[in-house]
């Protein structure tokens, strides 16, 4: 069985590579857009706590919708503008799913900064923007990236299901494998999705460390 999987992949190597690329393209585009929306939203919510719980609860609810159901809901909603099927609705769904980890991590990262630092920044005469750039963002960055990491790994899995609305990607092997009762094909798809998830997880973990300010690394080392 295992050897069958490897055999399948090596036989169809260029196609497997293409599907992996397509898969990552969907996830990557969705992640970029999610970050562009979720991080500012998280920052805004951190400054306006009265709207924090409705926004975060909203994102939470989206997250609990099963992906098949979400695709099902989007189909009639987006069909009138001819976007019911294909990559676009898949990307939209992934963006929606990503909002919770990204907004939540951004919000908590900013909220958990020591109040003395915020005070010091204000007291020194920093503008809101300078405070964000010089103090809040550098210190919150690792936690925000951890949110992106969660979102990315989760989306690699969900993207495999988006094949049912015609997104392409590695889900193609799984879907076709099921249709044709071809276990090696199904497993190849599943294996490649897992490998992608592991690679992305590793890259994001590295990014998380790289974004940790030197002073904080030293602080952690000294506290051990």
């Amino acid at each position: 069985m295992i050897s069958g999987v490897f055999h399948f992949i090596s036989e169809n190597f260029s196609q497997a590579l293409y599907l992996s690329w397509e898969h990552m393209w969907i996830v990557g585009v969705a992640l970029l857009i999610s970050a562009a929306a979720g991080i500012p939203l998280g920052l805004y919510v951190a400054g306006h706590e009265e709207i924090a719980s409705p926004i975060i609860n909203g994102a939470n609810i989206i997250m609990t919708i099963p992906s098949i159901a979400l695709f099902g809901i989007m189909l009639p909603l987006l069909s009138p503008i001819n976007l019911g099927l294909g990559k676009i609705p898949a990307i939209i769904a992934l963006i929606l799913y990503s909002q919770l980890p990204i907004i939540r991590n951004t919000f908590t990262a900013i909220k958990n900064l020591p109040p003395d630092l915020v005070d010091a920044a204000d007291g020194m005469g920093m503008t809101r923007w300078q405070r964000l750039k010089e103090v809040e963002m550098p210190l919150a960055a690792p936690v925000i990236i951890a949110g992106l990491r969660t979102a990315a790994v989760m989306n690699i899995g969900i993207a495999a299901i988006a094949v049912y609305i015609g997104s392409g990607g590695l889900g193609v092997y799984i879907q076709q494998g099921i249709d044709r009762f071809y276990p090696e094909m199904i497993l190849s798809g599943a294996l490649l999705v897992s490998v992608l998830a592991l690679i992305v997880d590793g890259i994001m973990a590295w990014l998380e460390r790289a974004a940790t300010p030197e002073g904080i690394k030293i602080q952690r080392k000294l506290m051990q």
Binding site: D116, G123, E214, G215
Partner: peptide, 30 residues
């Protein structure tokens, strides 16, 4: 307020140094 605070030197009770900045960068903020 931003101009006011830059004009008034402030030493806070909790110290509040920025852990991501070197000592030189902390001192030279204002």
């Amino acid at each position: 307020p931003v101009q006011l605070r830059q004009r008034l030197g402030y030493v806070i009770q909790a110290i509040g140094l920025f852990p991501n900045k070197t000592i030189a960068d902390n001192i030279s903020i204002v």
